[in-house]
Design a protein around this nucleic acid. Sequence first.
DNA 1: GGTATAAGTTACCGACTGGTAACATACCTG
DNA 2: CAGGTATGTTACCAGTCGGTAACTTATACC
Lengths: 213, 213
Amino acid sequence: MSSDTTGISRDDCGPGPLPAGGKSRVRDRIFETACELFYRHGIHGVGVDAIAAEAGSNKMSFYRSFASKDALVAEYLREQEREYWAWWDAAVARHPDDPRRQVEALFEAQLEIAKSNECRGCALGNAAAEITDDEDELSTLVRAYKDKVRKRLHAMARAMGARDAEVLGDALMLLLDGGYFTRLIFPLGSGPISAALSAVRTLIEAHLPKSPA
Amino acid sequence: MSSDTTGISRDDCGPGPLPAGGKSRVRDRIFETACELFYRHGIHGVGVDAIAAEAGSNKMSFYRSFASKDALVAEYLREQEREYWAWWDAAVARHPDDPRRQVEALFEAQLEIAKSNECRGCALGNAAAEITDDEDELSTLVRAYKDKVRKRLHAMARAMGARDAEVLGDALMLLLDGGYFTRLIFPLGSGPISAALSAVRTLIEAHLPKSPA
DNA sequence: GGTATAAGTTACCGACTGGTAACATACCTG
DNA sequence: CAGGTATGTTACCAGTCGGTAACTTATACC
């Protein structure tokens, strides 16, 4: 599923067994810079020249490490997804075997992130708003990611024994993505995202079989 | 890069004058076309040349009617907002003096729209994902719009006598925008947006003072 | 009919962007 | 030191995009 058609297939970004033994510092610097700039200014809004320059390099070095801007974008999206799941797993791991607390922890973590000044919502989702062209690789990537989010929420709702687990999971997803979306507009902690956790609790409560407090 | 050369698709390519009595027909045609294309392919994704051509006109005629692309974009956003409130008011008007049913009708109407093949979520919100540059006029416009949505939801929550009306209103906004956002990804009726109405009802119920069934 | 105005046509400009060629330099390793 | 590898530098190409100039044609209205 995660086949890499871009020709660049380094999943491992750390210092490791690179062919010549030398660290590809430039490539990493460029990539990090690209991730930042893409997230901040959007994909269309940043050119390869700007990326290379901001990374203290130049366009030619950029094209020695990346086949094309599209390839970089694809890698950016994959990296964002990787980080996202790492973040997700970390939030969830704090409450093993307690799916209800896991979901709450997820939204708590989201709220925490949303307080950051640099937060601009969901990188993958924002990309979807930009990549409107067609059924290209990027769209497929984002779609697969969102599908996975949804399935996980379904699974968590099921695991907590909810009635209509799919409906609950979908509702949670709406709240989650609504938080990301509105975060694009409302500055820092002033947006409606602060109400997400309360809504999450209410919805879960309503979907759980009656239980003694 | 599927640069589809826009086939001239004039609906009324026939003899005789165009819709008689119309004043600036070209301007209107261009503007309508621009709205469609902006919504479908994003603002960055459509050039003035493509707009003019798709409208059966040309760039020069475009610039006789619009001061710049930015001016057109601003007008596009204002028009989208106008249409949005018209849609909102129509949905709400069916249940005067019943804010609870009004909110439900709003989400019913959203679900209805989301079923359309042409639906690409919230035009203003998508624009916000694109316009990341700075505090320009466009951003301000979108922010004001989202603020108004939020305030209206607050007011409706208050009108239905909800406890924590602001929290409920914010939660509704998350569901609403979550629906728009996810609609960008999930095709037609298969997305989580179909769970919105159920969540809306649950949340409202939970925020309303206990009432007899 | 004649004239003002709206609209189409062609050509062009400057800026920018993705991408490449050719060459120069650093650096690490054998 | 030799030599390969990674990187920097400059220049350039082709395409696109926003925007304009100058001119021609069609339309409307008196």
